[in-house]
């Protein structure tokens, strides 16, 4: 197993766990946590491919990962704001109890 393969396998594991969290948990905040795990796994892939690329000094993968971190932070803020707003209307964060997303 090459070093790149090791990092990619770890990223795939974290991604699969994040996907399972997002698909199976009932709490909306846990779904957001799963999405964060998946985004982080993608970032690890980007950095690993950047490190083992022929020209790492071009910084392409590194920049992609940095912008991805920034967009993920924005996504977390908006997602958690939505969950808090929904909780104020219905007093629940249970996804099975929110069949419609009207305000």
């Amino acid at each position: 197993m090459t070093p790149l393969a090791g990092f990619l396998i770890v990223a795939a594991l974290v991604f699969a766990i994040g996907l399972a969290v997002a698909l199976t948990r009932r709490n909306a905040i846990m779904v957001l946590i799963g999405i964060e795990l998946m985004l982080n796994a993608a970032n690890l892939n980007l950095i690993a491919f950047w490190r083992f690329s022929p020209h790492p000094e071009a910084l392409t993968g590194m920049m992609f990962a940095l912008f991805s971190i920034a967009v993920a932070a924005a996504e977390a803020a908006v997602g958690l704001g939505l969950v808090i707003a929904y909780h104020r209307h219905t007093k629940t964060t249970d996804l099975d109890a929110m069949p419609r997303m009207k305000g």
Partner: peptide
């Protein structure tokens, strides 16, 4: 209540 949705088996299978 239960912490997993009713369709948890499908979710785990997909993951």
């Amino acid at each position: 209540y239960r912490i997993y949705t009713s369709s948890w088996l499908a979710g785990i299978a997909i993951a």
